[in-house]
Amino acid sequence: MVSLTVSFQYNKLRGRIKEMCATNEEFAKRMGLSSAVISLKLNNKSQWTQSEIYKAVEVLQIESADVPAYFFTPEV
């Protein structure tokens, strides 16, 4: 079985976090996660779950059509 690891670029997400929550710590608090967990996710050390993406979309007021641009832009 072949394992495929894809890294994603979260620059747009980082910008939205800053715009809506000011800090990663505040975003983490609103998400119900630790700032360490958020850091791992934004640095591709841990993957986002579907429920975390759903919660982040609510917290950051991201339109459904824009979700791929925030969470699924591959690193090049």
Rank of each mutant, 00 (worst) to 15 (best):
Q47R: 15
Y54G: 15
R14H: 06
I17E: 00
K29P: 00
M31R: 03
E19V: 04
G15H: 07
N43C: 10
S7C: 12
V76L: 10
K18N: 04
V6H: 12
F71D: 02
L4T: 13
F72G: 12
R30F: 04
S3L: 10
G32S: 09
F8I: 08
E58P: 00
R30N: 12
V59C: 06
A56W: 02
S51K: 07
L42P: 02
F8M: 05
S35H: 04
E19D: 01
K45S: 07
Q47V: 06
C21T: 03
Q47H: 13
I53E: 08
T73Q: 14
M1H: 11
N44C: 11
E26H: 15
E58T: 11
F71Q: 04
L40H: 08
T49G: 03
G32K: 10
Q50P: 15
A65C: 12
Y70S: 03
A65S: 13
K12T: 04
E26D: 15
N44R: 10
Q50F: 14
N44Y: 09
Y70D: 02
S3V: 15
Q61W: 06
S7P: 02
T73A: 08
V6N: 09
Y54E: 14
R14T: 03
R16Q: 12
K18D: 06
Q47D: 13
F71G: 02
N24L: 07
A65I: 01
L40M: 11
E75T: 07
W48S: 02
A65G: 06
E25N: 12
V57M: 10
A22W: 13
T49W: 12
R16H: 10
D66T: 03
S64Y: 09
E58R: 10
I38F: 03
I62G: 01
N44L: 11
A69H: 15
Y54V: 04
F72I: 03
Q50I: 15
T49Y: 12
T5I: 04
N11D: 14
E26L: 15
I17S: 02
G15Q: 09
M31C: 01
Y70H: 02
A36I: 09
Y54W: 07
L40W: 11
T23H: 10
E52D: 14
M1F: 12
Y70C: 00
A28K: 03
I38E: 01
V6M: 13
L33E: 04
V67L: 12
S3Q: 08
L4Q: 13
A36Y: 11
R14G: 00
A69K: 14
E75I: 03
N24S: 07
Y70V: 05
Q9S: 14
S3W: 06
C21Y: 01
S7N: 15
T23M: 05
A36S: 09
L40E: 13
L60D: 03
S7V: 09
I17C: 05
E58F: 09
E26S: 06
N44S: 14
T5C: 05
G15A: 02
Q50H: 15
V6R: 00
K18R: 15
A22D: 15
T73M: 06
I62F: 14
I38Q: 00
A65L: 12
S3F: 08
L33C: 13
N43I: 07
S39H: 11
F27N: 05
